[in-house]
């Protein structure tokens, strides 16, 4: 169908970016501003690209056929979890903007390393990544990303209602009080961080065949800020926020294509306007204002 040919890639990209926004949402549920997702996304993509193109894996590819793809996702998830633990445990002792900066540093270090190893193809990257399940058209990837999105949303909904979810929320509201009440902060913060890492890694592994190629430019600081924008503009308090933010902000430059020279200027203006006038994000527009929990004052107490 023509529509799918024309817009299939864009629609799948929207789902993919929504998922990456969600990968930021998990640490945020526990009050952690982590911008590490692009690092795990890049890692997952490299794993899939290497397993798909490197000669060392040829016998494995032959024997498994199409089953190598779910294997790639699994390996990417496990590797991201491992790296997430290694990086998360020391880094999550930091709060607020300091954690964000540490994760930015992590992403950049990973990028430079990837640029220089030969197994990652160096500056050129890896190409000729084989397509899963005989996919030919980009829109067919909706059969991979779509179910993943559904699964993750279901998982998130259940998580929010569970004990773990309540622990996250208590950490988000007031870490010290939660700790005093018996919620071990480090354990849950690392858990949230690792969940986000695993999601980003799996999305990366699915994206390498989607983009046909993978290189060090897939996991950069610019991506960190883009995902942050998805969450902030979509809405950071609700799981639909990052999905909506990701989908719309990914579609925006394409929708603006007819504007040609003005495309990115308008894109930038939309970002500014959205952050100015959507304090609760887009999701906030659609939901009736709940009574906001007692917020800590932004500034110090006036009276001493």
């Amino acid at each position: 169908m023509d529509f799918l040919q024309n817009y299939g890639f864009l629609i799948v990209t929207m789902i993919q970016q929504g998922l990456l926004g969600l990968s930021l949402y998990f640490p945020l549920m526990a009050g952690q501003l982590s911008l590490a997702s692009p690092g795990f996304y890049a890692l997952g993509g490299y794993i899939a690209a290497i397993m798909g193109t490197n000669a060392a894996f040829a016998p494995l590819r032959e024997s498994l056929g199409s089953w190598i793809f779910p294997l790639e996702w699994l390996v990417a998830g496990v590797a991201s979890a491992a790296l997430g633990l290694i990086v998360g445990v020391p880094a999550l002792r930091l709060r607020g903007i300091y954690l964000a900066l540490a994760t930015i540093a992590f992403v950049e270090i990973l990028r430079v390393v990837a640029l220089n190893l030969s197994v990652t193809g160096g500056a050129v990257g890896l190409f000729g990544v084989p397509q899963p399940f005989g996919f030919v058209d980009r829109w067919q990837y909706v059969w991979i990303f779509g179910p993943l999105l559904v699964l993750v949303l279901l998982f998130t909904a259940r998580l929010e209602r569970s004990r773990v979810g309540r622990a996250f929320r208590s950490l988000r509201e007031d870490e010290l009080a939660a700790d005093a009440m018996g919620v071990p902060p480090t354990r849950y913060k690392v858990m949230a961080f690792v969940i986000g890492a695993v999601l980003a890694g799996i999305v990366g592994a699915m994206s390498a065949p989607f983009l046909n190629t993978w290189n060090a430019r897939q996991g950069t600081f610019d991506a960190s800020i883009a995902y942050l924008a998805y969450v902030l503009i979509g809405g950071s308090r609700n799981m639909w926020g990052p999905v909506l933010g990701g989908a719309l902000l990914a579609a925006l430059p394409e929708v603006l294509r007819p504007l040609q020279d003005w495309r990115l200027i308008i894109n930038g203006l939309v970002l500014v306007v959205a952050s100015l006038y959507l304090p609760q994000g887009l999701v906030g527009l659609f939901r009736r204002r709940r009574a906001a929990p007692l917020a800590r004052p932004a500034t110090q107490e006036v009276a001493k």
Binding site: I225, L228, A229, G268, L269, L271, V272, V273, S275
Partner: peptide, 10 residues
């Protein structure tokens, strides 16, 4: 942060 990013892009 996001707002300033938008400004930079513009």
């Amino acid at each position: 942060l996001v707002s300033s990013l938008g400004v930079a892009l513009v």
